[in-house]
Design a binder for these strands. Structure first.
Lengths: 348, 348
DNA sequence: CTGAAAGCGCTAACAA
DNA sequence: TTGTTAGCGCTTTCAG
């Protein structure tokens, strides 16, 4: 009690070393049930292709022995592992939380096990780890990958591959439809009287960053709004803070940030500089990450259904893995504006 | 461009169906290098146990063929898969993200692949999924498990198992040392003049929740502080909101919440009711989750080094898996108080 | 130092 | 319907 120490040391009766249930195999089950191992395999995998009573006998035997298949042994002859891989570029980034959740849910639902790896924002590492993973999975899901299109296509030649948040030719890609959310956001700001808006872009090599910038520019032009694109910053809270002066000096009454992290950093810095939000400047983010409503004022943002994205992408991938049938397109991945406290009438 | 649709349908030249690199095996490498497959295996696994020049030849052959081991085939004879499992009780809870990060990092560092599953807060599902996973992993890490001690011990009898955030006899357990952080927090509040403090507990069946409550009670008694324990709530933002009235009516000038989520919800509700933080009531959380500094005022909290916890637990587990040597205890998992804006001098 | 051969647990023809 | 028989790709004795 006094020493709430960090590591509880197992005692003498170390459980991990006895390991009694030395994995029971179909041979054990077969012997107990008085049949051939192959019959056990059949009975357990293809119910119906075996006599009902022997099947029952086999199941009982398996039950009593607490038999569980060895996935590795099964994978060898079949070539299928029931494992799917998920590669995220930066596990630190909260947008991936939702993707992971969705993907995990879809995988488990389909009886698949999820293996996870991260590339720490390095395209080389990403390719290498994806390639390594490929050996043991039936399919691979890439979330906002940093790799080149060529690398991804190379992977897709070996095993079924799907991608979330990026569009790649000839590869199953699930991307949110940004149009709707952006249109809503621009309309929202125009309705509040904003006619000059700044944009803080994210990393220029990111497909999503470019896409958001383009669509935003298009939409603003369409709405006769003056869009001032500032210098790109890192897609983080500190990146956002670093953009504060540029935003202030831009003469804009509202600002779009590439993502919520930037938006939050921006708000923090702006507020600390004595600028009122939304009184002086309105702020809009992208993603609607966990915590976007913790800020004060809470953040108005273009929400991407990341969880659904991960779920749908995984489902589509597994559909292709198992059935081979083309996934049914047209998922409901529309973005929409979540209006909170960080936007208000244009100053002046 | 007009239709930024959700699913990009691969074209006719469907990459996934050709799959040309029909997995090269050690036989291919052996043939190319003019040696026996077993020699290839030796050369690649135990450098030095083979003639230097043949080894080079073999490596060259493997390289040119782009050979990669088949982890499943290797797992069969060896019984070792180079996969470790991680079970989290609720992937929705942000505290787990740090654990996942740390565990993933440690696993990759050790050349292991991480498989992830979640139990959605159900102890049955948790045990069942852990058991399923057990077949394919070399070790299992349980993060804040919901299972019974008996179930966990049962798992630990089959394969090496480690646990984070819970202490279980005879099982490798990594828990933060709460003493320090709690002592700091209580001292901090007493220094600010608080003599009556409320506590909003989390789920009573959670080991960690009970532990925090106990330690807090102890420490407050020691410091001659009046601790009012309120009714437990769900460990979520809405749970926190629901505790606001009880907190207000408790007559306390400061409140501890079981975790940050509760603390954040509490603050939101309190502020909306016109109570000033920390002017009227100071708030302290536990964990220091992502976003704890987004609130305003930002949250003072007892930080648990979750990421390190995941990392260390995984390292210890893998140490046991590979070396079998007992992990070196005494990790630096001390908690500490992070003072932010939600605490201030006692009112009145 | 290297080759030969057996086998890990399971599946999938092919027979019976 | 069930048993027989080959492997899947790799490791690992055991000889040579």
């Amino acid at each position: 009690m006094a020493d709430d120490s960090a590591v509880g040391e197992p005692g003498e009766t170390d459980a991990a070393s006895e390991r009694p249930s030395e994995s029971v195999t179909i041979y054990d089950v077969a012997k107990l049930a008085g049949v051939n191992p192959s019959t056990v395999s059949r009975a357990l995998n293809r119910p119906g292709r075996v006599n009902a009573v022997t099947e029952r006998r086999i199941r009982a035997a398996a039950e009593s022995l607490n038999y569980q298949v060895n996935p590795m042994a099964r994978a060898l002859p079949t070539g299928r592992t029931s494992i799917v891989g998920l590669v995220v570029s930066d596990i630190t980034n909260p947008v991936f939380f939702d993707v992971i959740r969705g993907a995990e849910a879809a995988a488990t639902r389909a009886g698949y096990t999820l293996v996870l790896t991260e590339s720490e924002e390095s395209d080389e590492r990403e390719y290498e780890r994806a390639q390594r993973m490929l050996r043991m999975v039936d399919g691979l899901l890439l979330a906002t990958p940093r790799m080149s299109d060529e690398q991804i296509t190379a992977l897709a030649r070996q095993k079924p591959v799907a991608v979330v948040n990026r569009l790649i030719d000839d590869v199953l890609s699930v991307v949110p439809d940004l149009q709707h959310g952006i249109a809503e956001a621009v309309r929202h700001l125009r309705g509040l009287g904003h006619s000059r808006i700044a944009y803080v872009p994210g990393p220029t090599l990111s497909w999503m960053a470019r896409r958001r910038g383009e669509l935003l520019a298009q939409r603003c032009e369409w709405a006769h709004i003056d869009l001032v694109t500032l210098d790109p910053v890192a897609p983080t809270v500190v990146g956002g803070r670093s953009a504060a002066v540029a935003v202030r000096d831009s003469g804009a009454t509202a600002v779009f940030a590439y993502n919520d992290l930037i938006a939050i950093g921006l708000m923090q810095e702006l507020v600390e500089t004595g600028i009122r939000i939304p009184g002086d400047i309105s702020v809009v983010g992208f993603d609607d990450i966990f915590g976007a409503d913790f800020t004060s004022p809470s953040l108005t943002t273009v929400k991407s259904p990341l969880r659904e994205g991960g779920d749908h992408a995984m489902s589509a991938l597994l559909g292709r893995v198992t059935g081979g049938e083309a996934p049914s397109g047209g998922f409901d991945l529309a973005t929409n504006l979540v209006v909170r406290g960080s936007t208000g009438p244009a100053a002046h």
